[in-house]
Every structure is written in C-alpha cells, then in structure tokens.
Design a protein around this nucleic acid. Structure first.
Length: 408
DNA sequence: AGTCCACAGGAAGGGCAGGCGA
DNA sequence: TCGCCTGCCCTTCCTGTGGACT
C-alpha cells in the first residue's frame, strides 16, 4: 500500500498561483471590448438594429477561417442586442447552436430538438416526426410578439451532412410567422458553401454577407496581451512569450483561438511545474499537448468502428513507409478495409461493410484527422488515397491509445 | 475508341430504440 | 400493453466515374 507522508493536494496548494481569472483565457469568454473587429461589429449591429424597433431584418451569412473572431463578435453583438432590447421593453431571444456538436445538432431532427430545448420545451432524443418538432418550434416562437435570433455556428458541417432543407424550412417558418420574427445568422469556415445552396435558400439566407479576414501576428499579440492582463497574475507573462504564441498562431492562418490555447496551456504547464512565470519552453510543450489532447479526445468519443478504421490507416501508413521506393506507397480504401477486417476479427467485433467504411473515412476526413482524396488509377479503378493529417508526436500517442483499445 | 477496374456515393429498405395514442 | 410511427445506423443494390490498358 502506498503511504503518503502529506496530503496529496499539498503540492498543488504550495505551488504559486499564476492565474488570476482563467475564464478570460477561454474561447467562450466574451470580452467587453473586441480589438481589430470594429468594422465587422458595426456592420453586424447595423444589420440587426431594426429588431429593436420591431422590424424584420435581413439574415446574415458570416465567413472566415478558424479563429478570426466570427463567433465571439456575433455573440458580443447578440449580447448587446438582448441587453438593449430588455432596456427598451422589446422581447429579444438569442439562441446559439454549434452544428458540429455530435448528437446535439448534427441532423435536422436534432437541430430542431435543440432549438426547442433552448426555448424551454422538453423534446425526446428520438421517436417524434421531424415535422412535429418543426410545428412545435413554429408555435413556440409565434406564441408572443418577439424577435428570435438564431446563430448557427459551423453551419457548413450540418449542410454537408444533411443538405440545405433545414435552412429552407427555417426561412419558410420566418415567412409564416404572424407575431414573432425570426433571424438567422449562419457562421462558416467554408467560403465555398454558399455556391452549394439551393437558389431560394441562397437568396433568403445570404441577404447580407460578412467576411472576417485573419489576424496578423501584431494583432494577435495585442489581443493576447489584453487577455493575459485579465487572465494571469502580474509578471507571469513576458513579451517574448506573447510574441511566440502570436507567431505560432499567425502561421496557422491567424488563428486567435490557437494563440489563446497556447498561452493558457503554457500557463497550466508552468503552474504544474511550480514555475513563477511562463517560459518559451512551456509554449513548446503546450503546442504538442494541445494537438494531442484534441485528437485523442475526438477519437475517444468516436464509435469503435471509427477507431478501428483509424488504427488500420496508421498501421498501413507505417507499413508503406518501410516499403522500397519503387513500390506504390499509397494507402487506399481497399487496403484499409482488409486491415480493418482483421482488427475486427481479432477483437470479435462484427465488421461493417465496405460501403459503410467509406462513410467512416469521410467522417475522419471531416474531423481533420486524415486527408482522403478520390483518385483514379486508370485501369486499376477509382479509390481514395488516404494520408494522416496529424504530426508525429500526436500520432504516437493516438496509436498508443488505439493499440491499447484493440490490442492489435 | 472501347474496355475495364475498384471503388465512390446515391437510393431504398431492414432492424432497433424510443414516443405516442388507443 | 400493443400497434404504429419516427429517426438513426447500417446493409444491399445499383449506377457513375476517370484514367490505364488494349
């Protein structure tokens, strides 16, 4: 039996506390002032302002790469709108839904169920016809004079999965409402999504468009400095640490989320080590740790078949690396299916069909864990060429998790 | 130019879990 | 409780595809 000489939490209590307000370093935190996005905020607020006078406003489509402030600016504007509405006696309800949340809003049924839950209506996970949810949502929204603003984040994910009927239905609800008004803000990283929309949806939802450009390194550094002042104790973060986080995030198309994650995780690592301030080496360690956690957490939540497919791809990639240079080293769907089948057999798991495996490969591709590209090998058929989209360190940890899971 | 391969991916339907109303 | 309905996950069946080969 292990005997502890002192309380197991004593080192945690003894270590210096570097954080002042950790919440200020999270993505979900909405600061009082958002830098370098004045133009976008003014534009969005001017589009939504007529809501305060009880008028219908245009729907908005917001584009921009990851971490360019789309979500935070939209939330900021909606908070202000709601606040002004309550000061002026206008009923304004804002709803934020992330369409990428698996089993929350990744089908039309789940989206309407989630919208109803946000309005305080209990909805079962399954069993009801979608048009019943659709009708309940319509009735709930229209039961009083109010403006409902729905913000659909990562809308491209739902669009790719189920098409644009949910958008069509939402815009149709809007046309039929008598007392209430409904506004939709669609947020997406996919600049090409608009082209795939039905003409009616396009004209209705894309009435207004806003593009968020990426932050540059100097802007990222300034944003980080402000968050660090709120989030850390004085003297914990140096200028060179801020520069390093900003530079690393700027390399990833000006992703402010990435910069914030780097700084927060570096702080956690420094605190755990008992250091008094954050050093550049903490940022390096944070960089590895973030990628690792993201991929492993994602895979942990995936069904076992998806996990087995990824393990097959990892095993095949390793085998291909060892092959001599003149041999075809590409990982193809058929090979993945063969390895996947043997993993399933060894683990007494019923194998899925190759058709279904194709869908799982598509899902892993959408999650950014692999890259899958349809290629033609001429006389030798059409297939998908698959490669891993994660770095060596993350790959090792992910492999370890999957090998422990399947013992393969 | 026509054939062929190895899938991609759409459509339809089955099984299952869960809700609803009689 | 039971029959019927639904969404979801999966299989089966099918057509389409694009470039190497003949």
């Amino acid at each position: 039996m292990v005997v502890f000489s002192e309380n197991i939490f004593s080192s945690y209590v003894k270590n210096p506390n570097l954080f002042n307000n950790k919440g200020a370093l999270l993505h979900s935190f909405v600061p009082e002032k958002i830098s370098y996005r004045d133009r976008e905020i003014m534009r969005l607020s001017s589009i939504l302002a007529p809501v305060l006078r009880g008028f219908q406003t245009n729907n908005v489509f917001i584009y921009g790469t990851c971490g360019t402030g789309k979500t935070i600016c939209s939330k900021f504007v909606l908070n202000q709108l709601e606040e002004m509405g309550s000061n002026n006696g206008r009923a304004i309800k804002t709803i934020y839904i992330n369409c990428k949340m698996k089993r929350v809003a990744d089908t039309e049924y789940r989206l309407f169920a989630q919208l109803l839950r946000e309005l305080g209506v209990a909805v079962p996970d399954t069993g009801l016809p979608t048009d019943v949810l659709y009708r309940s949502f319509f009735e709930k929204v229209d039961e009083k004079e109010q403006a409902v603003v729905i913000m659909l984040d990562e809308i491209d994910y739902l669009f790719k999965k189920v098409g644009d009927t949910f958008l069509y239905n939402l815009t149709r609800i809007n046309e039929e409402l008598k007392k209430a008004r409904l506004n939709i803000i669609g947020i997406t990283n996919d600049l090409g999504m608009r082209d795939g929309l039905d003409m009616r949806v396009k004209s209705s939802l894309g009435e207004e468009e806003l593009l968020f450009r990426p932050y540059n390194a100097a802007e990222l550094k300034d944003i980080l400095r402000k968050r660090a002042e709120a989030g850390f104790m004085p003297g914990v973060v140096s200028e060179c640490v801020l520069s390093k986080c900003a530079a690393l995030a700027a390399q990833e198309h000006g992703d402010a989320r990435r910069a914030l994650d780097l700084l927060r995780v570096a702080g956690e690592i420094a605190e755990r080590r008992g250091d008094m301030e954050i050093l550049e080496e903490h940022v390096d360690l944070a960089e590895q740790s973030i990628d690792m956690d993201k991929v492993i957490e994602t895979m942990r939540s995936q069904p076992k078949h998806s996990q087995a497919v990824l393990l097959s791809i990892i095993k095949l990639s390793e085998t291909m690396k060892k092959k001599s240079s003149w041999v075809d080293k590409r990982v193809l769907t058929g090979d993945v299916f063969n390895v996947y089948t043997s993993i399933c057999e060894e683990n007494c798991i019923k194998t899925l069909t190759q058709r279904r495996l194709g869908d799982l490969i598509t899902e892993l591709d959408m999650l950014g864990i692999i890259n899958a590209r349809v290629i033609s090998k001429g006389r030798y058929g059409r297939t998908r060429e698959i490669s891993l989209a994660i770095n060596e360190a993350v790959l090792e940890k992910t492999k370890k998790f999957l090998v422990e899971r399947f013992g393969y």
